Computed example of a mutant assay.
Amino acid sequence: MTDESTMTTIAPRGLPQKLNGLLHLLDYIPHDLIALISRISIGAVFWQSGQTKVDGWRVAETAVYLFETEYRLPFINPWLAAHLAAFAEHFFPALLVIGFASRLSALALLVMTLVIEIFLYPDAWPTHGTWAVCFLVIIAGGPGRVSMDYFIARYFSRTA
């Protein structure tokens, strides 16, 4: 005869315990990986958008036309807006991908996303929300150890 306490110790784990164990494994996904994927993926989105605004090394006339007719941002000249957008959509994603000035770059692109959401495409909030999460991961948690920011900070912490 076996008593009840012995049976509970050798009984197979139930489904809730197994699911909890599997969910616990997700705690081991490193922030470094999440930040790297966030930086590269959102950087690619903005880089590709920037590519549609340039013709070689110049801002395309079609980009200026788009800012004159469809975008029509308040308080800014369409020519200047097209040039600033083309610059920002190349400069900040490049910094994000290499992980240099990552938090600042993510913040700049988050502000750009807010402008797009508020003034251009307010119905696209699900897409812009997804972008915002990528930026907030980097702003709040940093770019991770696979970044120039990490290596620069590590260098200066050694010399201090």
Score class of each variant (00 low, 15 high):
D32Y: 07
I98W: 08
V111L: 06
E61K: 03
L36D: 04
F151P: 02
P126W: 10
A106R: 00
G56N: 06
E70H: 02
W79A: 11
L19T: 09
F151Y: 15
A60D: 13
P30G: 08
W125C: 13
L109C: 03
M112L: 04
F92W: 14
A44S: 10
E117Y: 03
Y71K: 01
L36G: 05
A140T: 12
T127K: 04
V146T: 07
S147Y: 09
L19D: 06
I40T: 08
M1Q: 02
T130H: 05
A85E: 04
D149G: 12
H83I: 14
Q51I: 13
V137E: 02
M112Q: 07
L33W: 15
G129Y: 13
Q17I: 10
R39S: 09
D3G: 05
I29V: 15
F75T: 10
D55K: 00
A63I: 13
I139S: 06
F75H: 05
P12N: 06
A140R: 12
P74S: 06
F87V: 13
H83A: 02
H83W: 10
A140I: 15
M7S: 09
C134H: 14
V111F: 03
S5Q: 07
H24N: 12
A86N: 03
A44Y: 15
G142F: 07
G14T: 13
G99S: 02
V59R: 00
M148H: 08
G144A: 08
S157V: 11
E4R: 08
W47T: 04
S38I: 03
E89S: 02
S102D: 03
R158A: 08
G141D: 03
S147V: 11
I76M: 13
F91P: 01
L114R: 02
I98D: 00
L33V: 14
